[in-house]
Design a protein around this nucleic acid. Structure first.
Lengths: 222, 222
DNA sequence: TATTTTTGACATCATGTGTTGTCACTTTAT
DNA sequence: ATAAAGTGACAACACATGATGTCAAAAATA
């Protein structure tokens, strides 16, 4: 059926070939999608609103995406990759000292979230409020970070202490802690300075499994 | 306008007065709402579906609720109160030893989530995917638990160690950790035994702020 | 310049949902 | 018994949205 209405020859238009134009329009929709999803949220996003934001018509939307949720999934994937890249870079040229490395990654994480609120909203807030397809996306995205943390802490586990301790579950907790802190931070319009957020997240992450007598800080409890 | 169609006299019907019938129908809708929201989710919930589940018609829905989201908010509030009550009870007759108390509360929390998957889904999953009104609900609900934890750990903070440590933020982290672990647990259909979940959550909660040399367990790292 | 492709604005269709209204039937009270 | 209140099934309406189609103007090629 595509052959019926297909043009005989493909022209360059305004100095762009057909693949170039397609790619540009797709990119335009991705940017518009990030703006709409990141500023107003998935609930408020409509096909027409996205097209208005993109300055393109519905036809070109369907040229690159199946439906609005497909666009969101693509935007989400992309933002997730961006964040992953930032963390990988921080991890790459980090010192070998465990605490310094942890601090560096955590700092990179929160700095990125602070510098790109739209990414933040898409990755940690909007991804929830959608159908089960999005929950798959969410779990996949989170799982990556949990695995990253798990590998970091797995080597430090001593099985003879408590054999119920599971690096996977611990990592899940730590991811949840970081995300939840990020959520609060975002919703407060980044009220606290970055250093404060990092310090408190560090306090949770580096203390894992050390439930002895000493409390927060260095005081001895009664 | 209500006066036009208002009945002249209020009758008892099937042995129930009008307030009794109203209350019963409202209760029926609350149960139906919990079933629909807790099993199929907010996205899949429709007014007609809720009425079918309740065995009542739309008229009686509007008798007690403004719209489906209003019903969800009421159901959410109710389930939150139930959970809060469970935790308060666990906290009330808990030993004074801090660790035992913490363990008791955490155990009560996860046991309740395991025993009532609908409550779990409504409280930790479905509450996200709605409009901003629900985010208010969510924040309010979470805030309560965060405050509870904050009060527990605030007394243990020594300000001369790191003055950026903030009981509020730490509590936010811990709530996030617990919720995220609960989310994973729920999505895995409660694959791990309760004791495992509790042990790992404990490892995170009781270790807060103790970021020294000792890692998970008791081993010394290189 | 003439023809074809490309574009954009807009109309149209189909569908689902919240909301309100209708009406026959049941139950209660006089 | 009869009239009024209550109930339940379902129709009807309004509206938003996704998806598809129409058509004239703009731009490129022969």
């Amino acid at each position: 059926m595509a052959a019926d209405t297909a043009p005989k020859r493909r022209r360059t238009y305004r100095g762009e070939s057909l693949p170039q134009r397609r790619a540009r329009r797709r990119e335009t929709f991705l940017r518009a999608g990030k703006a709409v999803f990141g500023d107003r949220g998935v609930q408020a996003a409509t096909l027409r609103g996205i097209c208005r934001e993109a300055g393109l018509t519905e036809r070109y939307f369907y040229e690159s995406f199946d439906n609005p949720l497909d666009l969101f999934a693509t935007v989400y994937d992309r933002e997730l990759d961006r964040l992953r890249e930032v963390l990988a870079r921080a991890l790459a040229d980090a010192p070998r000292d465990t605490e310094a490395l942890t601090r560096r990654v955590i700092t990179a994480y929160y700095a990125q979230l602070r510098d790109d609120p739209r990414l933040t909203r898409i990755l940690i807030i909007e991804v929830y409020g959608t159908v089960r397809d999005m929950q798959r996306l969410y779990r996949r995205g989170i799982q990556d970070f949990a695995d990253m943390i798990r590998d970091l802490i797995a080597a430090r586990i001593e099985p003879d202490t408590d054999d119920r301790l599971d690096p996977d579950l611990i990592a899940t907790c730590l991811v949840g802690a970081a995300i939840h802190l990020a959520t609060r931070w975002y919703l407060s319009d980044y009220a606290e300075p970055l250093e404060t957020i990092v310090a408190n997240c560090m306090a949770v992450v580096t203390g894992v499994g050390r439930g002895g007598a000493a409390p927060l800080g260095a005081a001895a409890d009664d």
